[in-house]
Amino acid sequence: MMADALALLCAFLLVAGSAFALTAAIGINRFPDLFTRMHAASKAGTVGSSLLLLAAGLYSWDFAVFLRALAGIAFLILTAPVAAHLLARAAKGSGYRISTLSVRATHRDNKK
């Protein structure tokens, strides 16, 4: 009974995680510019891989392995925003233009 529930939970996590990863991959192709693509990659991608790692950790039914999977998730969640931020900053600094809209004009005065 317990093993069945665990298997079902893992099955759900696996499908959900890979669906998020696929969504991120579709988003990276559909979105119009670099920054919007980064939204898809940094959020849906991170959550997808985290869910898959969580599934692997739970399915092992071993506390040490589960802790390692959690450490992997924590690492992923800590590094994904740092990488996205650095890349966005580099792209902005090197003159990559965003697909602009009128919203930006209202805040142009605030820029340095």
Binding site: S18, R37, M38, G45, S49, L52, A56
Partner: peptide
């Protein structure tokens, strides 16, 4: 180039997921 780097970053994330599935 930045677009490609974002995609490569994403590729690594998906590969991590794939490895987890193979572990299961």
């Amino acid at each position: 180039l930045p677009d490609r780097v974002v995609a490569l970053d994403m590729l690594v994330a998906v590969a991590i997921g794939l490895i987890a599935v193979i572990a299961v």
